[in-house]
């Protein structure tokens, strides 16, 4: 890891007014809006799933990583990238630094997000729905690390491809709760509708198993059927994303004459 890249990434994000405003909206604006519509316990639980689920974590990671990975435009780290790679800094060091900086930022934003949501709930005379304890804090840190790793890869793609992949992942994360149950009967449904539903379930399950890198540490460690598979899946996903990020970045050329 390069401490210079790590600190510079955080500094760039938290010193730019436009990115701070965007992040503040996700950290404070979104939970206030969600809390104001959480009129009862059920709605609050649904919204907490949204806050805790992959969608918001991905949105925050994506926003935080914006213009952060190998940005060649004359903004943020684009100004110094060519110079940076003229130095003996390996691409993998760069990727790891960006990943850790992103994780730190995502953790801070997610933490603010939950604190704001809880405060808004308390001010409205409702119970807080996200308990901040060892398990939730561990999940917050682990998920910040994993979602940032995923976003490092997405942000390393050419821009249009990256946006397309991000939209597919958001779709899968949003449709996930709707596919967490099966209807008891499809009698009367048009066969094509049923087939589309089955296809959606398949795609969503595939993405959840192989792409979404989240982990529920409490569930993994407090189970009566202990398995190392979730832990291996979590670590292998992060390593895979860092490897892909390094490979993608290594294939790009950077020089002063590029502009």
């Amino acid at each position: 890891m390069s401490p210079a890249v790590y600190l510079f990434t955080l500094w760039v994000k938290f010193s730019s007014m436009s990115s701070v405003l965007g992040l503040l909206f996700l950290a404070i604006g979104v939970p206030i809006i969600l809390s104001s519509v959480a009129v009862d316990g059920k709605t609050a639980d649904l919204l907490v799933n949204l806050v805790n689920g992959p969608t918001l974590a991905m949105a925050i990671s994506y926003t935080f990583m914006q213009d952060n990975i190998a940005n060649t435009r004359q903004m943020n780290d684009g100004e110094y990238l060519s110079l940076l790679f003229a130095r003996p800094l390996t691409r993998s060091q760069y990727i790891v630094s960006k990943w850790l900086a992103g994780s730190t930022g995502v953790f801070i934003i997610m933490m603010l997000n939950i604190l704001t949501f809880n405060t808004a709930q308390t001010l409205q005379g409702r119970n807080t729905v996200v308990d901040l304890n060892f398990w939730s804090m561990s999940d917050l840190i682990l998920n910040a690390l994993s979602y940032s790793a995923l976003m490092v890869v997405i942000r390393s793609f050419p821009m249009r491809l990256g946006i397309a992949v991000f939209i597919i992942l958001v779709y899968a994360s949003l449709i996930g709760p709707a596919l967490s149950f099966s209807m008891s009967s499809y009698e009367g449904a048009i066969p094509a509708v049923y087939m589309i539903f089955q296809a959606l379930v398949f795609i969503s399950n595939f993405l959840h198993h192989f792409v979404f890198p989240g982990i529920d540490l409490f569930e993994v460690l407090n189970t009566t059927r202990f398995s190392v598979l979730p832990l291996v899946t979590y670590v292998s996903n992060i390593l895979m994303y860092l490897l892909l990020g390094t490979v993608l970045l290594s294939r790009r050329e950077f020089s002063y004459g590029e502009e």
């Binding site: 390996t90 691409r91 993998s92 490897l243 390094t246």
Partner: peptide, 16 residues
């Protein structure tokens, strides 16, 4: 500087 570190490649392949 553009080489993929061996430890990353090997550990990723091993875990997969």
């Amino acid at each position: 500087t553009t080489a993929v570190p061996k430890w990353l490649l090997i550990s990723t392949m091993f875990l997969l």
